[in-house]
């Protein structure tokens, strides 16, 4: 068997799903083969690193509240009252706000709503989003269009102290996409690299038409939580 064949069995081996004789055969190859040893090590190292990624716990009382909500939603659905059945989505939102109050508001993604074509509401001042240095927050840009659009070019320009998570060092990103009729949401995970202010400019272009979306960003000094993230570096 070739090295590729052996490496193909690594996952089953680590899952404990390989039979005894196959395991033994695989192990004896690995012992003798430096390349396969390295591959297996790489697999384990990556897996361990992934497993150490932290999970932010749910809010206290979440499980009970969620179970109760499931029950209520079901009861509402069974009820002949059309008002109760028709209001599912807002009902959830309402529950989140009612259940967790300010905590929810603090954690909400930031929204900016724009209309690409058609009656444009004049936006006198771009919305201002604040985040802490090294904090990543989703900035959602909602773009309303009157019909399906193919071949739309989206360009995002960032002020120098901000980045899109995963695109380090890129101050400008551009890509092609299509927009569906109605509301389209673009989620940008924005990271503040340094303290300061700036403007994010997104350009949506289709045929001869284009629209600029501007969002002001403000990075404030990192709080304790963000600083903990830096300490992990070493």
């Amino acid at each position: 068997m070739s090295c590729t064949n052996h490496q193909d069995l690594f996952d089953e081996y680590l899952d404990g799903d390989l039979g005894e004789s196959q395991s033994a055969q695989l192990l004896s190859h690995i012992e003798a083969c430096g390349a396969c040893q390295t591959k297996l090590e790489q697999l384990l190292v990556l897996r361990n690193a992934l497993r150490q990624m932290p999970v932010e716990p749910a809010r206290a009382g979440f499980a009970q509240a969620a179970l109760r909500q499931a029950r209520l939603a079901h009861a509402a659905e069974k009820s002949p009252n059309p008002q109760a059945t028709g209001s599912r989505e807002p009902f959830f939102r309402h529950w989140f706000v009612a259940g967790f109050g300010g905590a929810m508001a603090a954690g909400l993604a930031l929204w900016a709503v724009f209309t690409l074509i058609g009656p444009v509401q004049p936006i006198s001042e771009p919305p201002m989003f604040k985040l802490a240095v090294l904090e990543t927050r989703d900035v959602n840009l909602a773009i309303n269009v009157p019909e399906d659009m193919d071949g739309v070019t989206l360009t995002v320009e960032l002020p120098e102290n901000f980045e899109i998570s995963g695109y380090h060092g890129k101050q400008q990103l551009a890509w092609q996409t299509r927009l569906k009729k109605g509301r389209n949401v673009l989620t940008l995970p924005v990271v503040a690299m340094k303290q300061g202010q700036g403007q994010l400019v997104a350009r949506v272009a289709h045929n001869q038409k284009s629209k600029l979306l501007r969002v002001n960003l403000q990075a404030n000094p990192a709080d304790k939580t963000s600083l903990m993230a830096i300490d992990l570096k070493a």
């Binding site: 690193a49 992934l50 990624m53 998570s165 995963g166």
Partner: peptide
């Protein structure tokens, strides 16, 4: 950094 791994995972 844990941060970088999370960042890459998100990509």
């Amino acid at each position: 950094t844990r941060e970088r791994l999370q960042e890459s995972f998100a990509v």
